[in-house]
């Protein structure tokens, strides 16, 4: 589904990704773990073409998105949905309009129809009667739900999650985790999640990849990762600082 080959990226001389190889499987939930500031978000943004690598190739459904022009890249992006760390809801629009935004932009459906779909998506993430509220009136957890509703508005094939549970209380964390799994089941979308929340990772992941010093040092099912012989991986999942 998504394949990264020898991807390198440096910001102002500091190497963030170093000849990284990674393959994301279709229809699975892949969680990428790693230290904070270790380039996980950068890696995720590469997959949707928000950041272009200094070298290497990124294939989405077999198409190399590194060399695409804006127009074709936009077509590829329509297959994606992305939930940002702070949800990145548009402040100037109310919740309903936020969720409806991709539909208004990319479909020619009548406005009434669009609002109906938006309500339906909100319902799917467990929100009711919030359409008219502004993002600033919502709690962090609710914002993430709205962000997820917006991400799945166009029924994407791939959903990217940038630290979905960061900054939430444990109950809300659990709710979001369950929502992710549920959504994945319903939509059968490929999910890529970056996280440093170890318990939730093992709860939801089909595959886990560990990013360390610009490379993927471990990749496998949760059980395989748990039994990894790599001390860095072991320290990380056990929460030991080295």
């Amino acid at each position: 589904m998504i394949r990264l080959e020898q991807v390198s990226k440096a910001f102002k001389g500091q190497i963030v990704l170093d000849h990284l190889d990674l393959e994301i499987e279709k229809g699975k939930i892949t969680v990428i773990i790693g230290q904070s500031g270790g380039g996980k978000s950068v890696l995720l943004k590469h997959m949707i073409g928000l950041i272009r690598p200094d070298s290497g190739h990124i294939y989405v459904n077999g198409i190399d998105i590194v060399s695409l022009d804006d127009k074709k890249l936009n077509d590829i992006r329509k297959k994606f949905g992305m939930l940002f760390q702070a949800a990145a809801l548009f402040d100037s629009m109310n919740v309903g309009e936020n969720v409806a935004f991709p539909l208004i932009e990319h479909t020619r459906l009548p406005r009434k129809e669009i609002m109906k779909i938006a309500e339906e998506k909100l319902l799917r993430v467990g929100l009711k009667n919030v359409s008219h509220k502004m993002p600033s009136e919502l709690s962090g957890g609710m914002r993430k739900r709205v962000g997820l509703a917006r991400a799945i508005a166009l029924d994407p094939e791939i959903i990217l999650f940038d630290e979905p549970t960061t900054g939430l209380d444990p109950v809300m964390c659990d709710a979001i985790d369950r929502l992710i799994v549920e959504t994945q089941k319903q939509t059968e979308a490929t999910c890529v999640i970056i996280s440093h929340d170890i318990p939730s990772t093992f709860k939801i992941a089909n595959k886990i990849a560990m990013l360390y010093q610009g490379k993927i040092i471990e990749m496998g099912t949760p059980d395989e990762v748990r039994s990894s012989t790599n001390p860095v991986v072991q320290n990380f999942i056990e929460g030991k600082s080295t």
């Binding site: 943004k45 928000l50 077509d75 990145a88 932009e105």
Partner: peptide, 8 residues
Amino acid sequence: DALYTMSV
């Protein structure tokens, strides 16, 4: 960034 991801 969100606008970019939504092809806008």
